[in-house]
């Protein structure tokens, strides 16, 4: 999987917007954006991850709606990470585009997104109408389990990005 045209496009964007100057030519740019990226991770997992755990049976006395009201904080964390992630990607595309950990992470992000859409379409109304103590319907359990697995996978892949370049020992499609 190689695409020099895409690489040039991303680099040009990063250069023209001044992102690259901050990320590569200041000592504080890259570390600051990393701190924000980890902060966003915790905002996302703290709200959406724990909502998923609650639906799957943890802390049944917490009202589902009380946790569900916090989902916007998770969405804010996601937006922060989409922006900071794009800052990494466009500043140094060849470190990421051909990296199987990034490719796997992108696939899991897509899965998490589609899964969230399906959850709100097919399962959320029934789930959020439940009375206190009622068990979660199987459909809601399914989507929240997929969500939990996708996000833990995203975190793992994120941490693998800086390892194994090239990762011939585990990447079967490289």
């Amino acid at each position: 999987m190689g695409d020099p045209a895409l690489e040039d496009l991303l680099l040009a964007f990063s250069e023209r917007t001044g992102i690259q100057a901050i990320m590569l030519f200041t000592p504080w740019g890259w570390p600051t954006v990393e701190i924000l990226h980890f902060t966003g991770l915790c905002l996302l997992f703290g709200t959406i991850g724990f909502f998923d755990l609650r639906v799957l049976g943890w802390a049944k006395r917490i009202p589902l709606n009380a946790l569900h009201r916090l989902v916007p904080i998770g969405v804010a964390g996601f937006c922060l990470n989409a922006i900071t992630g794009a800052m990494f990607l466009t500043s140094d595309p060849d470190q990421y585009l051909y990296n199987p950990a990034v490719q796997t992470k992108a696939a899991l992000l897509l899965l998490a997104g589609v899964n969230m859409g399906l959850f709100y379409w097919l399962a959320s109304r029934e789930l959020l109408a439940l009375g206190p103590g009622e068990p979660s319907p199987p459909r809601a359990r399914f989507f929240t389990l997929v969500s939990l697995l996708a996000w833990t996978g995203v975190i793992a892949c994120g941490r693998l990005i800086t390892f194994y370049r090239p990762p011939y020992n585990w990447c079967f499609w490289c």
């Binding site: 991770l41 915790c42 905002l43 997992f45 703290g46 991850g49 904080i73």
Partner: peptide, 12 residues
Amino acid sequence: AWAMALLVGISL
């Protein structure tokens, strides 16, 4: 990183 997500998540 997983432990951080859990620990900072529940602290949040």
